[in-house]
Design a protein around this nucleic acid. Structure first.
Length: 216
DNA sequence: GACCAGGCACATC
DNA sequence: GATGTGCATGGT
């Protein structure tokens, strides 16, 4: 029977440390968190490369841009009109609440900060928690579609649980270690991308022995 | 050509 | 509170 810690150990053995989030600055983490909503990361990389090439990957610049121009730059990430609005809403929050820098949020309480992030239109639970964990180094577990799918198949999560219940299951069954949370979510994505898809590819999956639904 | 990708807001029941 | 829909590009 797998456990939350044993699955982590197995994934770590298979994939090694992931060193997430793939970004150069905390602001780039937050931008990536919005752009990757329901979108493959490779396309987010293209969008961020466009923003860098246009020299506008900063809160003030991004916020001041014409929305249509911003949408054009982030076009490869999909949902570009919606995401342009969401990025500008995020930038407005940072400019209003943090003088444009995530670094100015370091002394705020995590749960209060989470509530503030959720107040931004376009920032839901996963996006907020990604920013909290990977940009602000808070000990919160990030839950995504892979997390739900993989751990339901493993029998560690009952089908149909909400975000908060899944998050509580992880946080309650793991050591309270921020770097563990950081790596675990990244390892889940690594597994989900290559193996635990909607149509699973179980042949070379490292969770073979732990997974009751492995196709053998 | 169908399916999928590191969601979210909003409408409706 | 649960469920359905629009948003959109690019890879497999």
């Amino acid at each position: 029977m797998p456990t939350f810690p044993s699955v982590y150990d197995t994934l770590y053995q298979a994939f090694g440390p992931q060193n997430w989030w793939p970004a150069e600055t905390p602001f780039e983490v937050a931008v990536g968190a919005v752009l990757t909503q329901n979108t493959a990361w490779i396309n987010v990389e293209r969008a961020i490369a466009n923003l860098k090439a246009a020299d506008c990957l900063g809160p003030a610049t991004l916020h001041a841009m014409d929305p249509a121009e911003l949408a054009g730059l982030i076009r490869p990430a999909g949902y570009f009109n919606i995401k342009a609005q969401r990025l500008q809403a995020l930038c407005r929050f940072l400019l209003d609440e943090a003088d444009g820098s995530l670094a100015n949020l370091t002394n705020r309480d995590t749960s209060a900060l989470r509530a503030q992030l959720l107040g931004i239109k376009g920032v839901g639970e996963e996006t907020a928690d990604s920013i909290l964990l990977y940009a602000l180094h808070r000990r919160v577990f990030v839950v995504d579609a892979y997390t739900r799918r993989i751990f339901e198949r493993l029998g560690l999560l009952k089908p149909g649980l909400g975000y908060g219940a899944i998050q509580a299951a992880f946080e309650g069954n793991l050591p309270r270690d921020r770097s563990l949370f950081n790596n675990y979510h990244a390892l889940i994505v690594a597994l989900g991308k290559d193996y635990c898809k909607p149509k699973p590819r179980c042949e070379a999956c490292p969770l073979q022995d732990l997974c009751p639904s492995a196709v053998t």
